[in-house]
Design a protein around this nucleic acid. Structure first.
Lengths: 350, 350
DNA sequence: GCGCGACGGGAAAGCGTTGTCCTCCATGGC
DNA sequence: GCCATGGAGGACAACGCTTTCCCGTCGCGC
C-alpha cells in the first residue's frame, strides 16, 4: 500500500505576492509578467519575475484568477456513462479541443438518470464554466426536464453557453446528429441488400436518440413498402446488456421470418450478437445484425458489424467549437451519418 | 445549426450579496444559511435566505469559495487516452467515487506523450486540486520524468495528494496493479493448457505497464522451463492498431511453431485477432491469443478473449479513496489480477 | 527650454466567498 | 436587581489574483 506522502514541510503554495517580493517588484508587475497582459513590462523586471516564479515553483491559482477576471477557463461535460465507448469518444474529442483552446474539462456522468442530470447541471453551474456540453441522452418531457430547462436558461442568461449533442434542443446550440436520416438510409440499404424480415432493438421509450433512430428506420422501411411489426420492436436498456436481453427476447418469441435485427446503437448490437451466438446461431449467417454509431469495436467483432458511422470524436470537438463560437467555415456542414455495410449483414441472395 | 443563445438580458449571475440584500440579512448570515456552517442561524432568517436564493437562481461561485476557503473540491485525473476502454473504465470509477464524495473531476489526456503529461500536471496544479490521479502510463527515466517528479513533489508539499495507478511510484500513494504476477499466472495457465510456442506483443520499451507484463509473462514461462524467443517479442504501439501491426509482423516472420500470442493489453489483443483473421486464419484455432485487462469487449469478440481480469472501475474508485485517505478496512486488500481463460485459447490436446 | 504624450511601475480597489471578531440582547444565577 | 454567560447577527478583513488609476519619467516637437 505504499505509505505515501512525502515528509513535506506542507507550506502553502507560493502566491503571486511571494513571487513579487522575491523579484522585488510590485504585485501588479508580477501579474503582468506572468500572464498575457496588454501592458508591456520592462524586460529586466519580467525576467526577474520569471526567475522568481520558477524558483518558488509558482503556479497561478486558477480559482483566484477566475474570481478576479470574472470568467473561468472551464468546460463542463455531461455524459450518460463514461465507460460507454460512444460517450468516451465524444469526451475524447471535447477534451482534445478544449486542450487546444487552453480550457479545462470537468466531467460528470448522469448514469442515465434525469434527476441526476438536473442535479449535476445545478452543481456544475457553480463552476461558472464557459460552456456546458450535454451529451447525455435526454428523455423528452419528464418532470426533471422542465427544471433542467430552467437551469440552463439561467446559465445562459448569465453568459454561459450550452451545447447539446444529439437532437436539436429548443433554443440552445446543438450538434444535431442525423439519427433519423442515418437509420433511414440504413433501412434502405438493408432492403436493397435483400432483407425483408426486420426487427428492432431500441432504448426505453422517450429516449430521444433511440426514438429518432427507430423512427428513421421505420420510415426507411416504409419507403420500401415494408412495415415493421410492432411485436418485433423490443425496448430493453440502451446498453450492451440491454442488447443481449432484447435479442434473447426476440429469439424466444420465435425467429420465423426474421432476417435482420437493427439495434439502435452499436453496444446493443454487440450484445445482440453475443446473444445470437449463445443461442447456438451464427450472427450474419442465421441472423443479420446492424447497429448505429460505428464505435471502434464494430470492426473487431465477428462478423464485423454493419452500422451507421458517426464521427464521434469530431462531434465532441465540434460541440465545443460550436459553444465557443469558434466554428470555422467548413465546420458549418452538418455531421454526416454514413451507412457502413459489413459482414454482419451479408448481401442476401433473393 | 440552431442559432442558439436565448435573447437573454445577460445579467451577471446573482451573488451572495444579492441574495443577502433580497433577504434583508447580512452577507454573513446569507453565507451561513446556504452552506453547512457550524453556526446556527435563526430559522426564519434561514428561510428568507433560501427563498431569496431560489428566487434569484443563486448558485454559489465555486471558485470564490475555493479562494476563500483555501481548498478546492476538485480532483484532477490524468489518463493517456479517454477513448481507450482501459482508461475509460478507470475514469468512470474515479468519477463515480468523486461524485459520491461531492467532488468534481477534471480530466486531461496525455496522448501518451510524457512531455504533455508534464505540461498537464503543471497546468492542472493551478486548480489546486485536492488530489491528482495519474493513470497515464509513464515511461521510466526519460527526460520529462525528473521534472514530473519535481512537479509532483511541489504539489504534495503544498498539501495536495497524488495517487498513481499502475506501478508503485517512489514516495507516492499508488494502487499497484499486479501486472507481473497476473501475466505470470497467465503464462502458467497457458502452459498448463498445453501451449508451448509463444510470442508476445508489448508496448514500446520503457513503458512501465508493458514491461511489467512482459516480464511477468517471461517469468511464468521460465518457471515452466520455457524460454520466450526474443525474436518473438514485438513492440508496436500500445494500441489496437499496434496490436494489429504487431501481429502482421509476426505472421510475416513465419508462424512455424507459434501457437499462442500474448498481447500486453486487450485492445492490442483485439487488433491482433483482426490481423489473424485478415490473414485468412482463425483466431483460437490457428493461433491462440490472450490479452490483459478484461475490457468489456473481451467477452464480445469471437472467440471470446482469454485475458487477465483487472477490476478497472474499482481501481479508479480505489485510487480516489486512497488519495483522499478514505480507504476502508477491506479496501486494503491488493487489487487481484485474475486469469480468465476463454475461447481464444482453447485447451490444446498435447 | 518647455509642455505634452506615451510609457510603464505601483498602490489600491475590486471579484465573490468565508471566517473572525465585535456587539447586542436575552437569559439565568445569586 | 445586577452581572456574568452565551447565542446569534453583522462588519470587515482576509483569500489570491486582475485591473484601474495615479504618478513619475522620458522623449520629442516647437
Amino acid at each position: 500500500m505504499s505509505a505515501g506522502g512525502t515528509s513535506g514541510e506542507r507550506r502553502a503554495p507560493a502566491t503571486l505576492h511571494d513571487v513579487a517580493r522575491e523579484a522585488g517588484v510590485s504585485l501588479a508587475t508580477a501579474s503582468r509578467s506572468l500572464n498575457g497582459s496588454t501592458r508591456k513590462v520592462n524586460e529586466e523586471y519580467r525576467q526577474r519575475v520569471l526567475a522568481a516564479a520558477a524558483k518558488l515553483d509558482y503556479s497561478p491559482n486558477l480559482s483566484a484568477q477566475a474570481v478576479a477576471r470574472g470568467t473561468s477557463t472551464t468546460v463542463a461535460l455531461l455524459v450518460a456513462d463514461i465507460a460507454d465507448p460512444y460517450f468516451a469518444q465524444i469526451a475524447a474529442g471535447v477534451v482534445r479541443e478544449a486542450d487546444h483552446e487552453g480550457l479545462i474539462v470537468t466531467m460528470a456522468a448522469t448514469e442515465r438518470d434525469s434527476e441526476r442530470e438536473l442535479e449535476l447541471v445545478r452543481s456544475l453551474r457553480g463552476q461558472r464554466p464557459r460552456v456546458m456540453i450535454l451529451a447525455a441522452s435526454r428523455r423528452a418531457g419528464d418532470a426533471a426536464s422542465a427544471l433542467l430547462a430552467e437551469e440552463l436558461r439561467a446559465f445562459e442568461a448569465n453568459g454561459g453557453r450550452v451545447a447539446f449533442i444529439g437532437a436539436v434542443e429548443a433554443p440552445y446550440r446543438s450538434v444535431p446528429l442525423d439519427n433519423a436520416a442515418g437509420a433511414e438510409s440504413l433501412a434502405r440499404a438493408l432492403v436493397e441488400a435483400g432483407y425483408r424480415g426486420f426487427a428492432a432493438l431500441t432504448g426505453a421509450e422517450g429516449l430521444r436518440t433511440a426514438e429518432d433512430r427507430l423512427g428513421g428506420f421505420i420510415a426507411g422501411l416504409a419507403a420500401s413498402g415494408i412495415a415493421l411489426d410492432p411485436a418485433r420492436i423490443v425496448r430493453p436498456a440502451f446498453t450492451r446488456d440491454g442488447g443481449y436481453d432484447g435479442m434473447r427476447t426476440l429469439i424466444e418469441q420465435g425467429l420465423d421470418d426474421l432476417e435482420v435485427v437493427f439495434a439502435a446503437n452499436d453496444v446493443m448490437a454487440v450484445g445482440a450478437m453475443s446473444a445470437v451466438r449463445d443461442a447456438g446461431l451464427v450472427p450474419g449467417r442465421d441472423i443479420a445484425i446492424a447497429g448505429f454509431d460505428d464505435i471502434p469495436t464494430a470492426r473487431d467483432v465477428t462478423p464485423p458489424l454493419s452500422t451507421v458511422r458517426l464521427p464521434l470524436e469530431e462531434i465532441g470537438r465540434r460541440a465545443l467549437r460550436l459553444a465557443l463560437g469558434t466554428l470555422d467555415e467548413g465546420d458549418e456542414l452538418p455531421v454526416r451519418a454514413e451507412v457502413v455495410l459489413r459482414g454482419s449483414t451479408p448481401t442476401r441472395a433473393s
